[in-house]
Amino acid sequence: METKVDEIAEGIYRLSTWVPEIAPPAGLTFNQFLIHAEEPLLFHTGPRAMFPLVSDAVGRICPVAELRWVAFGHVESDECGSMNQWLAAAPDAKVAHGALGCEVSLNDLCDRPPRPMADGEVLDLGGKRVRHLDTPHVPHNWEARVLYEESTGTLLCGDLFSHLGDGPALTTDDIVGPAMHMETMFRYSSLGPDLPVTLARLAELDTSTLALMHGSSFTGNGRNALRELADAYDARFLAHA
């Protein structure tokens, strides 16, 4: 395996590792995002076994020891499995997550106390600003959240819009259809009435880049993409109901 590095917005880098053994022949990418600022932030850590690959990729952009923040969408191995390896490699780094996630999991799991964040709270990285937004159970997990980088209009989506394949780092193509195809295969989202409501809330953001955990990131009208995803899930939930 190899980890590719691409800048998808000004100062925001996608670190992508394709694993062909998952859902072959398309395979699945595991993506992390480095926000290069005075206080660099890594969103998603990758699982423990990927730490050598991902840390090498981060090192192509800035020294790993200079990392100040480690963040992720929710508590799951591909999102935060190697977080303590990152904390060991970057002695000044802290995990930043929603207050609920810190209370139920991360206060115990992190080797250093995490930084809890309130819904809507902004973390000033110096040159970049990330806003924490709680999204409980969307797409899954009670402590789920996303981050919104204000200066570039980049939404760090976690597992939202996940799709298969090793496509380009950044696409203008439809990502809703492929996401619903993967939903049919894996049923990874919590299908409930709050899901389209949460997506509609995210659609109020002025988003031009959607940074995806699995699959190609998207550039274009992020608001419309989020509304279309909300409509697709709303139709699927109503059909099940």
Rank of each mutant, 00 (worst) to 15 (best):
N84R: 12
M83E: 01
L53H: 12
W86H: 09
V104T: 15
S105Y: 15
G127H: 12
A23W: 08
K94V: 01
D78L: 10
A49R: 13
H36P: 00
A23N: 11
E10L: 12
R131P: 00
H36I: 01
D92H: 14
D124I: 02
L87E: 05
R68Q: 13
C110M: 02
G127W: 10
R112H: 00
E79P: 01
D78K: 05
L28F: 06
G27D: 06
R112I: 00
H36E: 15
P52A: 05
T29P: 01
L41V: 06
F51A: 08
Q32I: 00
L106W: 06
F30D: 04
W86F: 14
A89K: 11
V64D: 09
T45W: 04
V70P: 02
M117Y: 10
Q85I: 03
L15S: 06
E7C: 02
V58R: 03
I61K: 00
D92G: 15
P113I: 00
A71R: 05
I61A: 01
E103P: 06
E79K: 05
P52V: 03
A71C: 13
L87V: 08
R129K: 15
R115Y: 07
L67A: 08
L67G: 05
A89T: 11
P114E: 00
I8Y: 03
N84G: 09
A49I: 10
R131Y: 00
P20Y: 04
A37W: 02
G101F: 08
Q32C: 14
L41G: 08
A96G: 07
P63G: 04
L34M: 09
E7T: 01
F43M: 05
I8S: 04
S16H: 00
G120K: 05
V58C: 04
L28T: 10
F30G: 02
W86I: 06
A89D: 11
Q32S: 15
T17M: 14
G59N: 11
L125H: 12
G73I: 06
L41T: 04
R14T: 05
G101E: 09
D92W: 07
L34S: 10
R48I: 12
S77F: 09
S55Q: 10
G98T: 10
P113T: 02
L42H: 02
M50T: 09
M83P: 01
Y13R: 03
Y13T: 01
L53G: 08
K94G: 01
Q32G: 13
R115I: 11
T45H: 07
P25L: 07
P113R: 04
D124K: 12
L28R: 11
N84W: 10
G11P: 06
F43N: 08
E39N: 15
A26R: 14
D111H: 09
D108T: 14
A57L: 03
H74L: 07
P20C: 05
